[in-house]
Amino acid sequence: MTPEVASLIDEASRLESLAMAIYTRLASCFREDGELHRFWMSMARHEAGHVGALALIRTLLEESADDLHFEVDDRVTREAAVLIQALHREAGGVVPLERAFAISLELETLELEDLVLDLTCALSDPAVRLQAEQMLLHDLSDLSLMIEKRCTDDELLARADALVDSRVGTDNRRGYVRRA
């Protein structure tokens, strides 16, 4: 694995940790509401799972017998870093529920997972590859359901539904990382 790929995974991992912290913060903002608290915690848990998946992939790539080389487009991490850090600061303040949902959509629209999923193509064992992919995929239908249930903003709901649709299957990946 090249240093470039290693640093890409490290950066993605850092950003997933920040996303986890944002969701944890939202959970604390809505502590008074059991359902919302559980929901934001489950979102945080998903992001934490992504960090674990990244660590797994990194280890597998390091141990791979092949000397793997990738062409990396790190644009996605650069853009994601700007947004996630801004959202992290915002989540430190008082966040109304609709804005919390919007933050969640902004986070989930980032294509960090896509980037890492591209890396999984290097995993030779199909079972391991499938496991890594499953750890990275996030079923966002809960987010959509919660928006439908708890807020009246149709446009927010439409954005959530569009995101769920776009995440069905993994064939829509953007190809940020390619085997060289």
Binding site: V82, A86, L87, R89, E90, G93, V94, P96, R99
Partner: peptide, 17 residues
């Protein structure tokens, strides 16, 4: 006002980057 504060903190976050 909270929405306004949210927007301002977003702008501040962006400008500090």
């Amino acid at each position: 006002v909270r929405e306004i504060e949210g927007l301002v903190s977003r702008l501040r976050a962006a400008s500090s980057h």
